[in-house]
Design a protein around this nucleic acid. Structure first.
Length: 462
RNA sequence: GGCCCCGUCGUCUAGCGGUUAGGAUCCAUGGUUUUCAUCCAUGUUACAGGAGUUCGAUUCUCCUCGGGGUCACCA
């Protein structure tokens, strides 16, 4: 069974880079009828917060990504790590190092002065003497000094590292006994049964160290997929400074989960020429072997297009429901079908859809000057008055076609073009030159409001 | 700086030795629409550079250049 995981450290909100690797992991697990588990890497007490962990969970909830099983919190697994550190100590695969931070600093500086690689020199590797007093030791793992460590990566291919280039006896437990990152990921991934690790390629350089831990503990090394970074417009790694990278900010901006997920799945991954993917299709079609090797720059134009696409194709009842999350109560509006049909093809975001709706529902308080100049001609008042009179005579006015028929009558009776009535009427109803079909607008606001807006416009502009 | 990864239209990408280098987005133009948007059609734009290998390289190899990542008692 394929078991994948998402393992954020709760130092802030969930950003889109993290979300994409989470999505990839989720899809791959679901495709294989496996499990997608969550682990919160909260061992750094100084930087982590409960709120951040909750924010991440909240984002997952909005997007509909469900994890399997219980959430693992590293902060609660101290005993497990201690046990495995002790095991390595007992087996002489790790040792106490009594070097002080000051000594380490001196070592580093001399190495830098000599233009050497900065690394621990292994001075306590085979230490058998009496430990210096007043020093709380760290635990270091005995890493190989030579030889190649090969990361068999499903995206990048085999990546070969030479031990002498990159390794030293790195710390696996700090002076206070707490374990370090490269040790705990390996232990947790192994113990949690994770056999396919999909993560950002910023972790690629760490992987040899984790492989050393896996091997020392005689755990099976999982399959790795290191997915390229998502870069910002400047081509740099996404950081908190890059504005709206918080996943929940996309909700506030009026993006739908479907659009965001569809956008992210196509960043670094593709399936031929297909652009639109439902969740079912993503699960069916996703395979990490098809992930790109190169980083992608994140650009929201396509997201907007996708979001517009999804809004257009969402049933009205569902849209009305979504809109309530943006403070627009439409569920009881008797013309909401006409309203949404007329407007959902014009909005790129739900926020935009909301404002398009209120623009129609609210009586205009002012009129665009250019529109008045262009649309309100000398005969406009007469035409509008004629139209108003016809409307008054009409009995049943419900659908857009009912209003259209009345407009048609006026056009025929006065022997004018459609634009002669359409333009001034549009300004009267909406205060500007653009907008949805007038018959729909009138059907939505009703006869009385239509007459009122015509009267307002005539009073204000004649 | 050491090590590692990457390099096709502005952006997201297809390509897996022989293609008029395809699609999407963006942009422009035309059509539809009383308007705007949608929609439809058309168009502009790319293989970083240089050596090889080969009958033939976007595709394979090497070098250069460019970009990114990583080098902690952070994760």
């Amino acid at each position: 069974m394929v078991v994948t995981r998402f393992a954020p450290s709760p130092t802030g909100y969930l950003h889109i880079g993290g979300l994409r690797t989470a999505l990839f992991s989720y899809l791959w697990a679901k495709k294989n009828k496996g499990e997608f588990v969550l682990r919160i890497e909260d061992t750094d007490k100084a930087r982590n917060s409960q709120e951040a962990a909750e924010a991440i969970l909240h984002a997952f909830e909005w997007l509909g990504l469900k994890h399997d099983g219980e959430i693992t919190y590293q902060s609660q697994r101290g005993e497990i790590y201690a046990k495995y550190i002790q095991k390595l100590l007992d087996e002489d695969k790790a040792y106490y190092c009594y070097m002080s931070k000051e000594e380490l600093e001196v070592l580093r500086e001399t190495q830098m002065a000599n233009k050497e690689r900065t690394m621990y020199d292994g001075r306590y590797r085979d230490f058998k003497g009496i430990p210096p007093e007043g020093i709380e030791p760290v635990v270091r793992i005995k890493a190989p000094k030579t030889g190649a460590i090969v990361v068999k990566d499903g995206v990048k291919g085999d990546v070969v590292f030479q031990a002498e280039d990159i390794l030293d006896d790195f710390v696996i437990a700090r002076a206070d006994g707490s374990p370090t990152y490269n040790f705990v990921v390996a232990v947790d991934d192994a113990l949690m049964g994770i056999n396919e690790v999909i993560r950002g390629d910023d972790h690629l350089s760490n992987t040899p160290k984790q492989i050393i831990v896996y091997e020392a503990l005689e755990f099976d090394v999982p399959k790795f997929y290191h997915v390229p970074m998502i870069h910002n417009a400047e081509g740099k790694k996404l950081s908190k400074r890059d504005g709206a990278t918080d996943v929940m900010a996309y909700k506030e901006m009026g993006y739908t989960p479907e659009a965001l997920l569809n956008f992210l799945v196509r960043l670094g991954w593709s399936y031929g020429d297909q652009e639109i993917f439902s969740m079912e299709e993503m699960i069916e079609l996703f395979n990490p072997k098809d992930i790109n090797k190169s980083a992608s720059i994140y650009n929201t134009q396509k997201l907007e297009w996708l979001n517009a696409h999804y809004i257009k194709n969402t049933p009205n009842a569902e849209l009305a429901d979504l809109l309530t999350q943006y403070g627009l109560l439409l569920t009881s509006h008797d013309k909401k079908e006409i309203l949404l049909d007329a407007l959902k093809e014009r909005a790129k975001t739900l926020v935009e859809l909301k404002s398009l709706i209120t623009e129609i529902l609210d009586t205009p308080e002012s009129y665009d000057e250019k529109a008045i100049k262009k649309a309100f001609k000398s005969d406009s008042v007469e035409i509008l008055n004629t139209f108003g009179a016809k409307l008054n005579q009409a009995r049943e006015l419900h659908l857009p076609t009912d209003y259209h028929d009345v407009m048609q009558e006026v056009v025929d009776a006065m022997e004018i073009g459609f634009g002669k009535i359409g333009q001034p009427l549009r300004v009267a109803l909406l205060g500007k030159m653009s907008g949805p079909g007038l018959d729909s607008v009138m059907a939505i606001i009703g006869k009385d409001e239509t007459l009122q807006r015509i009267a307002n416009a005539i009073a204000a502009n004649s």
